[in-house]
Write a protein that binds this DNA or RNA. Structure first.
Lengths: 204, 204
DNA sequence: GTCTATATAGTGATAGAC
DNA sequence: GTCTATCACTATATAGAC
């Protein structure tokens, strides 16, 4: 039963950590949802911090990779941007609470930033992908296809607009009393608006 | 000493809550920073929740008002947008951790959204300011001065870009190992980029 | 590997002396 | 109004039986 239970703890913990954050999730909580004793959580992962970090690192790694993929696709440039935003939105629609959790942990916890800095920044494959993306942007600017913009700024603009939609989604839903269907419509509306917003802002 | 101490507790609590969030701040923490006993916090505010809510509501109210002000200024339209982003950036530079705290509390705590919904949404003065802003946008669109855009989307775009800069500021600083001076340069760079980004995206 | 029991520490909150 | 002492609770983590 070992393999199964360890994985189940990971799955349940992931769900609870993402939904409620690290401090709001207790090992007792996790155990109850798994259907086992609280001591077992510590048997497999020794500390709550270990358990969290394992999940966090895996999610972070995965997200970082997925973010860079659409930037280096072989599509023509204007389609590439649209494609990129669409992929981000698809990704976010399947992981609505993840960005809030990640940003939250990184914003409030210097040690977690320290950890990420030491383990993720110097990934060569990702760096190459990023350089390739930068070259594309500079090429498009030189060709006069888009306005002068720093590649890093463009990424920030896209991520800001996409992520913010989902970070504020519970707020939007509850404060404006939206039905689930209205929320889906809102997400797709924002998706289109952001595509328009980014592409029009890039015109030279 | 009453008046002074109560105010000092409020000040210290505000600082700690904004820096670390509600769950990460204990009343013992607050007392230690104030230089008094922990029981005193409860003497003045009875519960930690009370203390937090008092600060939170005041900050939220204040922020909401400040956000609407620049949208209804008497400036010509193109200056108005620039002015608006500049004011938001000034506001954020003086309250760098506030948006993370507010969004965090609202994102993870349904009761706090419920509370905000019941107490802040139906403010008549703010609603009038918002309607006035909407009319301006629609007028500019009809005149052909800007592209068709829903007023709510424009606000969301601006807020997304501005807030995200500050929400991710600790991450940017630590992960890329920026000096304080570099961080200030980055903020001002983003300020200019966002102004460019929004204004160019509005061209018809 | 899984359980019960427990050590240890921290929390928010209250009672009561001064 | 401010303090000490303490309660009731919850948390993480570990020891040890099975």
């Amino acid at each position: 039963m070992k393999e199964n239970l360890e994985q189940k703890i990971l799955d349940v913990a992931e769900q609870l950590f993402i939904a409620n954050g690290f401090t709001r999730t207790s090992t007792t909580d996790i155990a109850r949802h798994v259907g086992c004793n609280q001591a077992l959580i510590h048997y497999y992962f020794r500390t709550k911090e270990n358990l969290f970090q394992q999940i966090f690192v895996q999610k972070f790694e995965h997200t970082l990779t997925r973010l860079l993929e659409p930037l280096t696709s072989e599509l023509p440039f204007d389609e590439k941007i649209t494609n990129c935003i669409n992929i981000y939105f698809n990704l976010l629609q399947d992981n609505r609470q993840l960005p809030t959790c990640i940003i939250n942990e990184l914003a409030f916890n210097p040690e977690r930033r320290e950890f990420i800095r030491n383990n993720f920044i110097k990934n060569q494959i990702r760096q190459q992908a990023y350089y390739r993306y930068c070259e594309t942007i500079e090429h498009e600017i030189q060709q006069g296809n888009i306005r002068p913009v720093q590649p890093f700024d463009l990424i920030l603009n896209i991520i800001s607009l996409c992520l913010f939609t989902f970070i504020t989604l519970p707020i939007y839903t509850d404060l404006l009393e939206r039905t689930p269907q209205q929320v889906e419509e809102y997400i797709n509306h924002r998706r289109q608006e952001i595509i328009t917003q980014i592409t029009t802002s890039l015109r030279p």
